[in-house]
């Protein structure tokens, strides 16, 4: 009993280890089911698809540190991707990318304003801005229907390309992840996030002005979602009005599986990255099993539940 508790505490303090074990296990099962699948190409593909998911999940992870969530992230990513693709024929690649990130920042800022100044629950706030974003995108689409759209080669290269066996998107993602992992524990901002999520009153007492944190946090979350959208459209190469939306709930799931508490004050982005990889591998696994779609979706849900339940049980204090 006490041994189990000790293991639980160890895993609680090092949440990434059991996740890596689970990931290895899943890959093992995959290799067992389909010997030879575990090759460079498959790994590259899995990583390629996991990266936009992990970036979107960064929005969830960091907002969850404060006890929040960003349900507008999927829409924001879609908006950025779509706006960028439709602007490329008009203004060229560079300006299009920069312009496309403006709505992302804007939606994030509005989320931040609602959470910071009107005390609206982030779930509600980001849900609302997501709706508004979707509507705006649909209206926008009617204006640009004539211009057509184009995914610039640079993004395609980044999204789908492989160099020396490594997906090019790692060029963006590795520095990105390193920065986030550094920032969460070794910057004042990161500390403030955990502090607010752990005890808002105590953070205030210690001099943290929550509104500043929320404003910056949700704006950054918008920005990250926008970048994830650009990367994703580079991967998919076909912009649409609901391009990234299907990744929203998986992004929440990736953060949760990765050990981030939805109530705030606990978690790590490293866990989220592994969580995103687990979801991707799981997806392949379920597809390979040639099950009816219903069974696949069902198992996907069950596994999310089981993993988080085991996790909660192990780290229950």
């Amino acid at each position: 009993m006490s041994a189990l508790a000790r293991i639980g505490r160890f895993l609680g303090d090092n949440p990434v280890i059991p996740l890596l074990i689970l990931l290895a296990l899943l890959v093992g099962v995959l290799e067992f089911m389909r010997p030879g699948i575990l090759n460079e190409r498959w790994i590259g593909n899995t990583v390629k698809f996991a990266i936009p998911l992990a970036m979107l999940a960064a929005c969830q992870t960091f907002t969850m540190y404060t006890g929040g969530i960003d349900l507008s992230a999927g829409v924001v990513a879609t908006v950025s991707a779509f706006v960028m693709a439709t602007l490329v024929p008009v203004v060229g690649t560079g300006p299009a990318i920069l312009l496309a990130l403006i709505p992302a920042l804007l939606i994030g800022l509005v989320n931040g304003i609602g959470v910071a100044f009107a005390n609206v629950h982030p779930l509600i706030m980001s849900l609302g801005t997501g709706l508004i974003g979707t509507g705006c995108l649909q209206v926008y689409q009617r204006f640009v229907i004539a211009t057509g759209s184009e995914v610039p080669p640079f993004l395609t290269w980044l999204g789908t390309g492989v160099t020396w066996g490594f997906p090019n998107s790692l060029l963006i993602f590795v520095p990105f992840a390193a920065l986030l992992i550094y920032a969460q524990s070794r910057t004042g901002f990161g500390r403030a996030l955990y502090a607010i999520g752990s005890n808002k009153e105590a953070a205030r007492l210690s001099g943290v002005r929550a509104w500043q944190v929320y404003l910056l946090l949700y704006t950054l979350s918008g920005l990250v979602a926008g970048i994830a959208g650009l990367l994703y459209v580079g991967l998919i190469r076909a912009p649409s009005l609901s391009l990234v939306n299907p990744l929203l709930l998986p992004s929440v799931a990736a953060a949760v599986i990765g050990g981030t508490s939805i109530f705030g004050g606990r978690g790590s982005y490293a866990g989220t990255i592994v969580g995103a990889l687990i979801l991707r591998v799981l997806d392949t696994l379920l597809t390979l099993m040639r099950m009816p779609e219903g069974m696949r979706v069902l198992l996907f849900g069950l596994i999310i539940l089981v993993v988080t339940a085991i996790y909660v049980r192990l780290t229950d204090r």
């Binding site: 910057t187 004042g188 500390r191 403030a192 955990y194 502090a195 752990s198 005890n199 009153e201 105590a202 953070a203 007492l205 210690s206 001099g207 943290v208 002005r209 004050g265 606990r266």
Partner: peptide, 20 residues
Amino acid sequence: HALLAGRSVRENIALPLTAR
């Protein structure tokens, strides 16, 4: 009202240093 219950002693003590 004063403690970050789930965080470390270190983070609790150091919080005011980086609050601004």
